[in-house]
Amino acid sequence: MPTLADSVRLADDGVHILDRRVFPARREWVHCATAEDVAKAIEDMVTQSSGPYFAALWAMVLAAREAVELPDPMAHIVGMGERIVATRPTNNGLREAVRIVLSTVDSRDPVGSALAGAHAGDEEYRSRSRALGEHAAKLLPDNARVLTHCWADLYLVGLVEAAQAAGKTFRFYCTETRPYLQGARLTAETLAEMGVETTLITDNMAAAVLASGQVDALVTAADRVTMDGHVVNKIGTLGLAVAARSFGVPFLAMVHAPDRFAPTAADVPIEHRAGAEVLTAAGVVNPAIQGHYPAFDVTPPRFVSTVVTDRGPFDPAALAGYHQEEL
């Protein structure tokens, strides 16, 4: 199992989170003794990609532990759930993790029931990611040259494992993904751990690489996909999608499911992080210079070839079909 696929762990003394801000140069774990500590770690980017989902699951278990001695245990657990969801509002994985645990919490046994819900949420996410990877792998030919942006963790692991099981070989180009360099530090590292041929490019090389004919598909994860087919993902995805369309390269966006609570892009809050994070990453210290950091962008459906879900691929204009399967 790649390192990042098991980077958030529950223990008797709290939750331990692998610090992705320094990975892979160092493998340091941040100890969170309380649910609030976990919320702060998520806000501070200690964990990224799929990591916040798992952190949210185990944070809810800590909230249940804390609630046992309180006069209104459920109020504390629900309140902490709201706090966790608010930490990174664009990605609805946090909301889903909290929902799963709250749906199982029983006031007669808050800790045991929360723990059961968190374990169920953990297994469900991993199972859906495997299914998602299998569907995406089927859409890519053997020896496909894939351009990625930012994503790491279980979507990526599911895709690579499915390809390997099918006897396919993929080669990846990873954008560095500024300002946190998730592509350079997380995506590329995970692919290398899995024995996949990986080439790192700087963000400003991507359009040229697409134009050169060296890429067969642009494949990214999505933090959220709206019901009308807008793909919300790490800032920079929009530019890649526009370039890919210009040069005839298909764009596959991977997500467990379109968000039924987000009919349009206007229904998705876009997280803006402190501009200082851009300056810090660049080593700029001049106080007269400002930074601007919208953490996500929105790609209109006309630039998206296929939305791949755990139930298979969908045209961006036909995402209502995903939820119709539940009826």
Score class of each variant (00 low, 15 high):
Glu124Ser: 15
Pro141Gly: 10
Glu123Leu: 15
Lys138Val: 06
Arg145Asn: 11
Ala136Phe: 03
Arg128Asp: 03
Pro141Asn: 11
Ser127Gly: 12
Pro141His: 15
Ala144Lys: 12
Ala136Arg: 04
Val146Gln: 05
Cys150His: 15
Gly133Lys: 00
Glu134Gln: 08
His135Phe: 07
Leu140Cys: 02
Glu124Pro: 01
Arg126Thr: 02
Ala131Ile: 00
Ala152Pro: 09
Ala136Gly: 06
Ala137Gly: 02
Asp122His: 14
Arg128Tyr: 07
Ala152His: 13
Ala152Leu: 06
Asp122Asn: 04
Arg145Glu: 09
Pro141Lys: 02
Arg145His: 08
Ser129Asp: 14
His135Tyr: 10
Thr148Leu: 12
Glu124Trp: 13
Ala131Gln: 04
Cys150Lys: 05
Ala137Tyr: 02
Thr148Arg: 03
Leu140His: 03
Asp122Arg: 10
Ser129Leu: 00
Arg130Thr: 13
Thr148Cys: 12
His135Ser: 01
Thr148Ala: 01
Leu139Glu: 08
Ala144Glu: 00
Ala144Val: 01
Ala136His: 00
Arg126Gly: 02
Leu140Phe: 03
Glu124His: 15
Tyr125Asn: 14
Asp122Pro: 13
Cys150Glu: 03
Ala131Gly: 05
Arg130Ser: 12
Ala137Asn: 11
Arg130Asn: 04
Leu140Trp: 07
Leu132Glu: 03
Leu140Ser: 05
Ser127His: 06
Gly121Met: 15
His135Ile: 00
Ala144Trp: 04
Ala144Asn: 06
Val146Ser: 05
Thr148Trp: 09
Leu132Thr: 07
Asp122Met: 10
Arg128Phe: 05
Glu123Asn: 11
Pro141Glu: 09
Thr148Asp: 02
Gly133Ile: 01
Ser127Asn: 15
Arg126Phe: 11
Gly121Phe: 02
Ala136Cys: 12
Asp122Thr: 09
Leu132Pro: 02
Cys150Ser: 15
Ala136Thr: 14
Arg145Cys: 06
Ser127Lys: 13
Ser127Phe: 05
Val146Ala: 11
Leu140Val: 10
His135Gly: 01
Arg130Tyr: 04
Glu134Phe: 03
Leu139Arg: 03
Pro141Ile: 14
Trp151Met: 14
Glu134Thr: 10
Ser127Arg: 14
Pro141Thr: 15
Gly121Arg: 11
Ala137Phe: 04
Arg126Trp: 08
Ala152Gly: 07
Ser127Leu: 09
Pro141Arg: 04
Tyr125Val: 06
Gly121Trp: 10
Leu147Gly: 05
Ala137Glu: 01
Gly133Ala: 04
Glu124Ile: 09
Lys138His: 09
Asp122Glu: 13
Glu124Asn: 13
His135Leu: 00
Ala131Arg: 11
Gly133Gln: 05
Asp142Leu: 08
